[in-house]
Design a protein around this nucleic acid. Structure first.
Lengths: 208, 208
DNA sequence: AGCAGCATCAGCCAAAAGGCGGAGAGACCA
DNA sequence: TGGTCTCTCCGCCTTTTGGCTGATGCTGCT
């Protein structure tokens, strides 16, 4: 039986402790280091070269989880990266996978699920919590509902409460174009007003 | 030295484990039970009568933390209740204190801070994390910015994306009244459009 | 070459939202 | 009792938003 070295990355001490205690019950896991921020994670990966990095996405100040994953990937490191976070927002999932995450777990996952995900990750298997998988699945089935990059950009600004005029100025496009984009966004999100679009975006797409 | 019995309430296993491990390092703490939901918390308080209940506010499905606190208080139980959560939204803080919480800690609090809060709580002292205290303080200094109950109710519905007409129907008031309330809400939140109000509400007031 | 998707813009019109001032009823408190 | 909040409502007017139709240039794919 090979020992799997693990680096934990989470800005909350209690979560790190809990995860460490949990992984400690398994003979094949060895938590070699813990990081409280993205920056620290990059450093510690250098020093310890863990087989798996278990990382939260939300990370208080500084570099967030997504950015940390991206940078780890760029440094040609061969760690398997597992996302371990509270929310299953569409945007986060897509961005994490895009950045190079091997799996995506929710914090309310059962211990066995977590163990299986880590063991799978070192073997190159992709494991994710059921709600996460179902969201990804839905996106694949309904590609019509996926926002274009420009639309996503607009939606992001929309959640700051800007008016059509302000959106146009910010993006250097006419108000007419803003309206066109908005109409498409509403259709894709299944809403009819900007108010509902903002609510949906912040809650469902995780645009906080 | 008296032993302080503690009940942990959090829907995330890792958080409970971490907190338990953390409290285990102190000789005067004894975690006598753990609950994963508000309902379970009420039961376990009956059976164990812990001196302190450490409780998360967000609790997946079912009864949330605020409601659990309220019900505990109604049952004339003498437990000190400590909120231990991730967010420091204005609304949550006020509602938790209102429901009868003794203290309010953030999950990124230092261990010593957590220990001190628990020990203080059994002695009737109120302890809260610095960011939480600062928010409460600000509310006291600017009472003009505190929403009335009705306004808060309206704002909550607003974040669902309802139109003025729908708001009126939902609350059994005229559209004119809705507009009046909205104008007051905008002024208090420091915004000028409903879009910005929604954004502010969801992000700052934690109305998800 | 042709077609689909994306981003850009226009005009027109109806509906919704927002700003302004004013006002009455009930609750609560000094 | 008088003052202050809070909640309720009105009218008028301007601005903003949303629905609809249609159009252009670009890219990428077939």
């Amino acid at each position: 039986m090979t020992t799997i070295t693990v680096l934990l990355v989470d800005d909350h001490l209690v979560v790190r402790s809990g995860l460490k205690a949990l992984l400690g019950t398994q003979p094949d896991f060895d938590v070699v280091a813990e990081a409280a921020s993205g920056e620290e994670a990059l450093e510690l990966v250098e020093h310890h070269s863990p087989a798996v990095v278990v990382m939260d996405l939300a990370m208080g100040a500084g570099m967030d989880g997504i950015e940390a994953i991206r940078q780890l990937r760029q440094r040609n490191s061969r760690q398997a990266i597992l996302v371990f976070t509270t929310y299953d927002s569409d945007a986060d999932i897509v961005r994490a996978v895009d950045a190079g995450a091997m799996g995506y777990l929710l914090k309310d996952a059962a211990p066995d699920e977590i163990f299986a995900a880590i063991r799978g990750a070192v073997q190159g298997k992709s494991v994710m919590s059921a709600p996460v998988a179902s969201r990804l699945f839905q996106q694949l089935r309904n590609p019509d509902e996926v926002l274009t990059p420009r639309e996503a950009e607009l939606l992001s600004l929309l959640t700051e409460g800007l008016s059509n005029r302000e959106l146009g100025q910010r993006l250097f496009i006419s108000e007419a174009t803003v309206k066109t984009h908005l109409a498409h966004i509403y259709a894709k999100l299944g809403v009819e007003t900007r108010a509902a679009a903002i609510a949906t975006a912040i809650r469902r797409e995780g645009m906080r």
